[in-house]
Amino acid sequence: MGRAFRTPRPRRHRWAACHERLIDALLTLARAESATSDLLPVDLAEVACSVLDQMDERCRRRNLRVRAHLDEAPVTGDPLLLEQMIGNFVDNAVKYNLDEGVLDVRTGTTAAGAFVGVGNDGATLAPHEIPVLFEPFRRLTDRVGSTRGSGLGLSIVRAVAHTHHGDAAAAPRTGGGLTVTVTLPCAR
């Protein structure tokens, strides 16, 4: 009697998923660095609220305390790119946060424009380390070699901000962690 052999099903290797995410990130970066064409009224508070809803399960799994203070922050821009931008830096803040840490998300307006800021608890960072975080494929030494990302998240954030005539900045938090803030011109 012959032995029955099963044809092995092709398994999707975990690296395939990583490559897909990398390609998506590179395409987003390229799109962010080109001129925006779909300029529509967007409230950064609504976008941040939507992103937080999407991240809710991940935050709960990590026992993160989410503090959101979302005041109106009207801008004119590409809604998809702005959602990707906020999604990237909220994703970073969740990914590099401490378990049971705090995730702060704020939106509003100042004399400089409309802003969205995201802060998290985490490793203590020196001020001289901050600029590296915005460079493509560059991560801090404690993050290099991890499977947590490609080093494009904050590069995309800055590229989208620049495309919308704004800027992105980051500052280390007292006690560890990081706050990233994007400021864009207010909608007229």
Rank of each mutant, 00 (worst) to 15 (best):
G2E: 15
R3W: 14
A4R: 14
F5Q: 10
R6D: 10
R6K: 12
T7E: 14
P8L: 11
P8C: 04
R9L: 13
P10D: 07
R11H: 11
R12I: 15
A17L: 15
H19G: 13
E20Y: 08
D24M: 13
D24V: 10
D24Q: 13
A25D: 12
T28G: 05
T28F: 02
A30C: 00
A30S: 13
A35T: 02
V42N: 09
V42P: 10
L44R: 08
A45C: 07
C49P: 05
S50K: 14
S50G: 15
V51S: 07
L52G: 07
L52I: 09
Q54C: 11
Q54H: 14
M55V: 09
M55T: 09
R58I: 04
R61Y: 10
N63E: 14
L64C: 02
V66I: 14
V66A: 06
R67Y: 01
A68H: 00
H69Y: 00
D71S: 12
D71I: 02
G77F: 05
D78L: 00
P79I: 09
M85P: 02
I86M: 00
I86Q: 06
G87H: 14
G87F: 10
N88R: 14
D91A: 10
K95V: 01
Y96I: 04
E100F: 11
G101W: 03
G101D: 09
G101K: 10
V102T: 15
V102A: 11
L103C: 00
D104K: 11
R106T: 12
T107C: 04
A112M: 08
G113I: 06
G113F: 03
V116A: 07
G117D: 05
N120V: 01
G122A: 02
T124F: 00
A126G: 04
A126V: 01
H128T: 06
H128D: 09
H128P: 03
I130S: 04
P131T: 03
P131A: 04
V132C: 07
L133C: 01
T141R: 11
R143M: 12
R143E: 14
V144W: 06
V144K: 11
G145T: 03
T147F: 10
R148T: 10
S150C: 14
L154K: 02
S155N: 11
S155Q: 09
I156T: 08
R158L: 03
A159I: 06
V160A: 07
A161M: 08
G166K: 00
A168H: 00
A169W: 00
A169T: 12
A170Q: 00
A171M: 03
G176P: 03
G177I: 01
L178F: 04
T179I: 02
V180S: 03
V180D: 04
T181S: 02
V182F: 05
L184R: 08
P185M: 01
